[in-house]
Simulated assay, not measured.
Amino acid sequence: MSVLGNLTRRLGHHRWFGAAARLLVPADRLVGRVTKGRVVALGLVPSLVITTTGRRSGKPRSNPLLYVPDGDGYVVVGSNWGQQHQPSWALNLIAEPRAEVAVKGRRVPVRAELATGAERDRLWRLLVTEWPAYQTYLERAGGREIRVFRLVPTDASDGSHPGG
């Protein structure tokens, strides 16, 4: 891990960091789109761009997210930087679990599985190991359930995933 990556992980616990990072998300989306998912979060942490289907609009919605690998899947968390409301992308996945991720320049159709019980606990530990500030975000979220999803690659032959 780079020195800058380690510094970012330490700063992630500060409230101002989440506020500043939220302001940078539109630029991160643009960089992810221009690089076709090869560069997300400036390459500081393992990141992907998820494209969900808007639960109200029905339109594709893309968001950069930190992830941890888990077998052939990707684990993401709806921390929303510790805010007290759910992120839109997580609500979109609840409404329509089919999505697409761009990881290291590769587009992969996925199906989101909401983790619960012991599986959620296992995945949470993986996430906190990668980004310790998730524990801080949990405290800030004011009792809100922070959802953990495992994104499982699917067969794209039906063409029914966002962006496809």
Rank of each mutant, 00 (worst) to 15 (best):
residue 24 L to K: 13
residue 102 A to G: 07
residue 13 H to E: 03
residue 99 A to W: 14
residue 143 G to I: 00
residue 91 L to N: 14
residue 146 I to E: 00
residue 49 V to W: 12
residue 76 V to Q: 09
residue 50 I to F: 09
residue 42 L to E: 08
residue 37 G to A: 06
residue 62 S to I: 02
residue 25 V to S: 10
residue 147 R to W: 03
residue 74 Y to T: 05
residue 62 S to Y: 09
residue 125 R to S: 14
residue 148 V to Q: 06
residue 119 E to N: 03
residue 61 R to D: 15
residue 32 G to D: 07
residue 159 G to M: 00
residue 104 K to M: 05
residue 124 W to N: 09
residue 94 I to V: 12
residue 34 V to P: 01
residue 44 L to C: 02
residue 32 G to C: 09
residue 157 S to V: 05
residue 137 Y to L: 03
residue 135 Q to H: 13
residue 133 A to H: 05
residue 125 R to I: 00
residue 105 G to T: 06
residue 92 N to T: 08
residue 70 D to F: 11
residue 78 G to Y: 03
residue 155 D to L: 01
residue 80 N to E: 09
residue 118 A to W: 03
residue 19 A to W: 08
residue 65 L to I: 15
residue 95 A to F: 15
residue 68 V to N: 03
residue 124 W to T: 11
residue 80 N to P: 02
residue 109 P to Q: 07
residue 67 Y to Q: 06
residue 24 L to T: 10
residue 93 L to E: 13
residue 60 P to G: 04
residue 105 G to V: 07
residue 105 G to S: 10
residue 67 Y to F: 13
residue 109 P to L: 02
residue 101 V to K: 04
residue 122 R to F: 11
residue 127 L to C: 14
residue 145 E to M: 03
residue 32 G to F: 05
residue 113 E to P: 00
residue 160 S to Y: 02
residue 117 G to C: 13
residue 68 V to P: 06
residue 89 W to E: 12
residue 10 R to Q: 00
residue 153 P to S: 09
residue 5 G to Y: 00
residue 14 H to L: 14
residue 156 A to T: 10
residue 116 T to C: 03
residue 23 L to K: 10
residue 58 G to R: 13
residue 153 P to C: 04
residue 91 L to Q: 13
residue 64 P to R: 09
residue 5 G to S: 10
residue 23 L to Q: 13
residue 29 R to S: 12
residue 15 R to T: 08
residue 133 A to K: 01
residue 149 F to R: 07
residue 130 E to A: 15
residue 60 P to F: 07
residue 137 Y to Q: 04
residue 32 G to P: 08
residue 39 V to I: 08
residue 20 A to C: 11
residue 59 K to Q: 15
residue 50 I to T: 11
residue 30 L to I: 10
residue 63 N to C: 04
residue 138 L to N: 08
residue 67 Y to W: 04
residue 133 A to Q: 09
residue 158 D to Y: 01
residue 141 A to W: 04
residue 39 V to N: 04
residue 22 R to F: 05
residue 86 Q to H: 15
residue 112 A to T: 06
residue 55 R to A: 06
residue 114 L to D: 04
residue 143 G to F: 02
residue 137 Y to S: 04
residue 3 V to H: 01
residue 75 V to S: 09
residue 35 T to I: 05
residue 10 R to S: 00
residue 85 H to R: 13
residue 41 A to E: 12
residue 17 F to V: 05
residue 107 R to H: 07
residue 144 R to H: 02
residue 49 V to R: 13
residue 148 V to P: 08
residue 55 R to K: 15
residue 151 L to V: 08
residue 76 V to R: 12
residue 67 Y to K: 10
residue 92 N to H: 14
residue 61 R to N: 12
residue 14 H to M: 05
residue 113 E to T: 12
residue 71 G to S: 11
residue 74 Y to K: 02
residue 41 A to P: 00
